[in-house]
């Protein structure tokens, strides 16, 4: 039996990296660690080594909702036992786990989930809290997006004051991605038709977020499209990338590694000007003076050498 109540319990947030970051773009994982070190808030965050795939909604939510919900609840239980908020770095993990917390408020579904979780010695209850009126209630596990935690909990001022490589003159096209914004049936982290948090983070690093046509359009990869019909995903990405190169952006920045994977690798198939794609964590790490090697850009299909030689100066 593995003891989950170890020293890590003290941290407020549990880090849920998901599948794509550790296995495809490990530079994002490293960048996140660098950011917390530079901002001096390392002690607030702890790893979640027991966590597994969120599970991926394009597969599990599409083929068996019950299995999807139990596997998601298992991940939520890890945060619950440590009384932590769960921080995701991927729109897919974010929407899958957030949707799970909302569905688990249905007693019928909760009963089904807990009957099965009993087999693995877990139980989803939520986190106990006492209301101002003195009532004891159980709140769902808080599922947070990294961008939301940076913006609302850590604050732009803190990030701004830690910038050592201001990204002056860098023209950034921000791609939010669908599951950052929708479905609005879930609790929204910001205005789904006029999101600003990633743009503001980009601006706080000294770069300029450029507007482009159909900015909130889909990258084309989600829901199993990329896995099933690669060409269709590429056709959808192509529109996006065309709009981005029309405004002459130097870099695409997204809060989602799956959108990153799509917009990055698809460029090998398209005859369009190449634009490198970063996760928002990689851009912040660069501006905070991380060693450019930490960004793990070797894993990216589109090289970002120009940006690194221009902005990756201070070590």
């Amino acid at each position: 039996m593995i003891d989950t109540k170890d020293a890590r319990t003290a941290a407020k947030y549990g880090l849920f990296y998901g599948c794509i970051i550790p296995n495809r773009y490990p530079g994002i994982e490293r960048s996140v660690k660098v950011i917390f070190e530079k901002l001096g808030c390392n002690q607030l965050f702890s790893e979640m080594p027991q966590a597994t795939c969120c599970p991926v909604p394009g597969i599990f939510y599409s083929s068996d909702k019950d299995t999807w919900l139990v596997l998601a609840a298992r991940n939520l239980c890890i945060a619950q036992d440590r009384k932590q908020e769960l921080v995701t770095f991927c729109n897919g993990c974010f929407s899958s786990l957030l949707m799970a917390t909302e569905q688990l408020s249905d007693p019928k579904k909760l009963g089904m989930v807990n009957r099965i979780l009993k087999n693995v010695f877990m139980k989803y209850t939520g986190v106990p809290r006492v209301t101002p009126e003195g009532r004891r209630i159980l709140e769902p596990i808080k599922v947070r997006h990294f961008v939301d935690v940076l913006y609302r909990d850590i604050g732009l001022e803190t990030i701004k004051s830690a910038v050592v490589n201001p990204l002056n003159g860098l023209r950034v096209a921000v791609h939010y991605g669908c599951h950052y914004l929708r479905p609005t049936e879930n609790e929204c982290i910001e205005d789904p038709v006029n999101p600003i948090m990633v743009d503001d983070i980009v601006a706080s690093l000294g770069a300029k977020s450029v507007n482009y046509e159909n900015k909130l359009d889909c990258c084309g990869a989600g829901g199993g499209v990329r896995s099933h019909v690669v060409g269709l995903a590429a056709a959808i990405s192509r529109d996006k990338l065309m709009n981005i190169s029309n405004v002459g952006a130097d870099l695409i920045v997204t809060p989602c590694p799956y959108c990153l994977l799509q917009l990055d690798t698809v460029q090998e198939r398209l005859e369009l000007p190449r634009v490198p794609v970063f996760h928002v964590a990689q851009l912040i790490a660069l501006a905070l003076g991380a060693d450019p090697q930490c960004l793990g850009l070797e894993a990216h299909a589109v090289r970002a050498d120009e940006i690194i030689s221009k902005y990756g100066g201070t070590k």
């Binding site: 669908c178 829901g223 199993g224 499209v225």
Partner: peptide, 13 residues
């Protein structure tokens, strides 16, 4: 019909 919805949920909105 093929399995090709990106589940972007724009239709729902």
């Amino acid at each position: 019909t093929p399995w090709v919805c990106a589940t972007c949920h724009r239709c729902y909105e």
